[in-house]
């Protein structure tokens, strides 16, 4: 997974994270906590299912751009698988 943050007039920041570091049991627990604050209760099985699917998608769509946000002032964030 690659996260890129560009700000006009500033240095571009990017972070590459290996898939195993993003999709593992620890991150699923952290994600479950995060979505719980949004009122969604996710069980361990649900999270593992999500992670399994994300791993499959990573293999299938290598470098898929999941999110791209471009502000009018030039600020840009991209999250790529």
């Amino acid at each position: 997974m690659r996260i890129t943050v560009k700000q006009p007039g500033r240095m571009t920041f990017w972070m590459g994270l290996p898939a195993w570091m993003v999709f593992n049991s620890l991150t699923t627990k952290i994600a479950a906590k995060a979505v719980e604050s949004k009122g969604v209760k996710l069980g361990r099985q649900d999270m593992l299912r999500l992670v399994k699917e994300l791993r499959r998608i990573k293999r299938k769509y290598l470098r898929l751009e999941l999110v791209s946000v471009e502000a009018a002032d030039g600020f840009r964030v991209r999250i790529r698988l």
Binding site: V35, K38, G39, V40, K41, L42, D46, R49, L50, E53, L54, R56, I57, K60, Y61, L64, E65, L66, V67, S68, V69, E70, A71, A72
Partner: peptide
């Protein structure tokens, strides 16, 4: 209208799983 652009690309299986486990888009 201010010129901000957001693009989200999600594979359909992920959307389906999200729905099955009770996630909603606004959340």
């Amino acid at each position: 209208p201010q010129g901000d652009k957001i693009r989200v690309n999600l594979p359909m299986p992920l959307v389906r799983i999200g729905l099955e486990i009770g996630l909603k888009i606004p959340q």
